[in-house]
Design a protein around this nucleic acid. Sequence first.
DNA 1: CTACGACTTGAAGTCGGCTTTAGGACAAGA
DNA 2: TCTTGTCCTAAAGCCGACTTCAAGTCGTAG
Lengths: 146, 146
Amino acid sequence: MLDISEVARRASVKPSALRYYEKIGLIASVSRHGLRRQYDPDVLPRLSLISLGKAAGFSLEEIAGMFRLTPEIVLPRDRIAARAADVEAEIERLQTLVRLMRHVALCPEDDHLSCPRFQKLMRVATRERAPRARRAPRPTRRAAAT
Amino acid sequence: MLDISEVARRASVKPSALRYYEKIGLIASVSRHGLRRQYDPDVLPRLSLISLGKAAGFSLEEIAGMFRLTPEIVLPRDRIAARAADVEAEIERLQTLVRLMRHVALCPEDDHLSCPRFQKLMRVATRERAPRARRAPRPTRRAAAT
DNA sequence: CTACGACTTGAAGTCGGCTTTAGGACAAGA
DNA sequence: TCTTGTCCTAAAGCCGACTTCAAGTCGTAG
């Protein structure tokens, strides 16, 4: 059994987040020591999966949906494959973006808007925007700092 | 001169967003036709840049900061280069993630948590989390659908 | 036995990036 | 002249993912 603070420390997740996850059904505590939640060590890999799911752009609700399919964690392969494709599309978009940014950082032209190469990269970058691509939320500065 | 609705249409940005951008100093309207904002066509490439900046993970405030440096748009090369590096790190993380997802989608193992390959990928994926990486916000479903 | 400190709760607050709403204003067409 | 349609404004609302707050409850060290 792990105390909530122990879980928080080992998973790098704040206790308040753990309580929130419990509230929305993402994880469960197995008992209490006084008022304090006690967790089965199984919660740790589960939290890793949650973290990965978030990184993959799944919402907590979607992740909860996967987890609730069975008592154990069973992952819906087709949805995961589809999301993998989304993420790959996202990667390509970001790669174009990096090219554009690198150009801006290096090109001596003052007014990028009139630089032909910039214009071309920008056209590519703006054309490639996949409307269905979903990305993970930007972490709050608060959360990132913690 | 372009009417706000024209700009909204051509830039795929809602009028309310244009007004919001104006409020926070990202763009400016040059005159009014009655009450209606009229825009210089220059606003279109500017909006493209804003869109790109968002995709690169800059906040609107950061973008506004760049834009305000001079009357024209002058981009701070060092910050852009730094962000490009961030985005590249993000790309690598996402690539690991895609490998992990693809494995999950293909591996016949029922319980991924006990699959050695999965464990290894997960270790890599969770180890690679760059704390400073910033990502664009997930578009609202509302906004995405519009 | 009592004080301490870490936990508990539900509710409210935060953040960015908008959208929506309510109540007006205006130009152009009938 | 009046209606219509689109715009205007300020203010409030929304979303997800939490965090923070105020007030309360425990186990344990002293």
